[in-house]
Every structure is written in C-alpha cells, then in structure tokens.
Simulated assay, not measured.
Amino acid sequence: MYGPPYQVADRMQTAVLSQIAGGVSYTSTEICAVRGSTVEINCTYTYPSSSGDSGVYSCKSENQYGFTSTSLHLDVHYAPKPPSVSVSPSGEIMEGSSVTLTCSSDANPAAHYTWYKEDEDSPTASGQIFTITDITAEHGGKYQCEAQNTHGRSNTTLHLTVGAGKSVIIMNIIRLTLVVVLVPVLVWTLWTRMKKTLSLKSEVNEAVEMIEVS
C-alpha cells in the first residue's frame, strides 16, 4: 500500500500499517529530508494469509502537520473446507416419501457441489441441494458430497437408510396372514386326502381277500 507523495516541511514520522479488524503490530520510523522536497512513503505488510485474514486494511502516514491514509480490501482465496451435510426430514426415511440432502462448505471462491452414490461411477446429481422423490429401498446406501473450486476439493460421506413404507408393511402383514391361515388348511387338506386314499386302498384289499376266499 502506498501513501501519496509528501512535500516535506520538517522532520517526518510515519506509523506503518493499521488493520481495522485489529490484531496487527504497529511500527514507526523517522525519516529526514530537505525542506521543500518531496518523498514517497510506502507501507508494507507481509504475513502468511489464511481465510480469517480477509478484510479491510489501511495505511496511515502522519507528522506534526497532518496525516494521510489509504485503504484496501484483502480477499483471501482458499480451497473448500470439509463439507457438512444435512438431511430433511430428519429421522427414518420411509419408502414412498421424499428426502432432501443439503451440502455446505466454507470456500472462497464459492464451491461447486457434486453428489455421488456408492458403487456408481457417474455423478448422481450436481448442486448444493439434492432431492430424491418417491424414494425406494434401492435409494438407500452411502452418498458422497464433493465440494470443489479452483484451489482444491473436499468431500464428506453420509449413509441414507430407507425404511419400509406403510404399503409395504400392509403387504407384509397380508402375506404373513395368508401363510398363517393357508398352511394349516393345506396341511389339513393333504392329510384328509391321504386318509381317504389309505381308506380306499384298505377297502379294495378287503374286497380282494373276500373274492379269493369265495
């Protein structure tokens, strides 16, 4: 950052770098120059930047005759942080219902989102919000949300569990009822037929014996 040229009237003192957000050290120095000449004062700030360093910075130069300052906005770019994923509605997801998955990541510039399902090569969906309607048991499994920008990428995995819907539960109850009712009926029917067959054979044998005796 640079301050405008000064016309020197006397000994000049500079205070270097002030940050609006605070947390920056101040240094000062004295310069000597010939009265009536012009000097240029530079402010320099060197620091390993992080995402929290974005903000407005100002440089101020002053002496006993006044001061001048200039400011700039520092925009720090960084790769996406590990995303967080929310599921709506929360709790057990039932067959036939709808579910919305939302992925969010801290990134600058803003991240682009892609969804993948376990054991599938191509993306399942793109965008921060992924909605599945008329969900079935096949939709259950692991999903991965990937956040990406020009500086890198990061991902998070969640497991989606799909429970049986009301229609499925009703069908299972009907099947169980049929099994409980029909199996005994079938067994009784078979047993009755076997008894009749055995009785018929017995009668035939008796008739044959009577004919032989006669």
Rank of each mutant, 00 (worst) to 15 (best):
R153E: 12
A125Q: 11
A125H: 14
E138R: 03
G140V: 00
I135V: 09
D106Y: 04
I132W: 02
Y143N: 04
D106Q: 07
T150S: 14
D106C: 09
E146S: 07
Y113T: 01
H139W: 13
I132C: 01
S97N: 15
H139S: 09
F130W: 00
I135S: 01
D106H: 04
H151E: 15
G140I: 01
S126C: 12
A111E: 03
D119P: 02
S126R: 15
E120A: 12
C145I: 03
T131C: 03
D106L: 09
D134N: 14
Y116K: 00
K142Y: 07
N108E: 08
P123G: 14
F130I: 01
K142V: 11
S105F: 06
G141F: 07
G127F: 07
E120V: 11
T136C: 08
R153A: 11
Q128I: 07
A110M: 07
A137I: 10
Q148P: 01
T156G: 04
D119W: 14
D119G: 05
I132T: 03
Y116A: 03
P109D: 03
P123R: 14
E120N: 10
T131Y: 02
L101K: 00
T133V: 13
V99K: 04
W115F: 06
A107C: 12
H151M: 09
D121S: 10
T150R: 13
S104L: 10
D119C: 08
A125R: 08
Q128D: 04
W115A: 03
D134S: 11
I129D: 03
T133Y: 08
S105R: 15
C103F: 02
S97D: 15
E120K: 07
I132Y: 00
R153M: 09
Q148K: 08
A110S: 15
L101N: 03
Q148C: 01
W115E: 00
Q144R: 12
S126W: 11
I135R: 10
E138M: 05
G141N: 05
R153K: 12
S98V: 13
A125K: 13
N149A: 07
S104Y: 05
H139D: 14
C103W: 01
H139V: 06
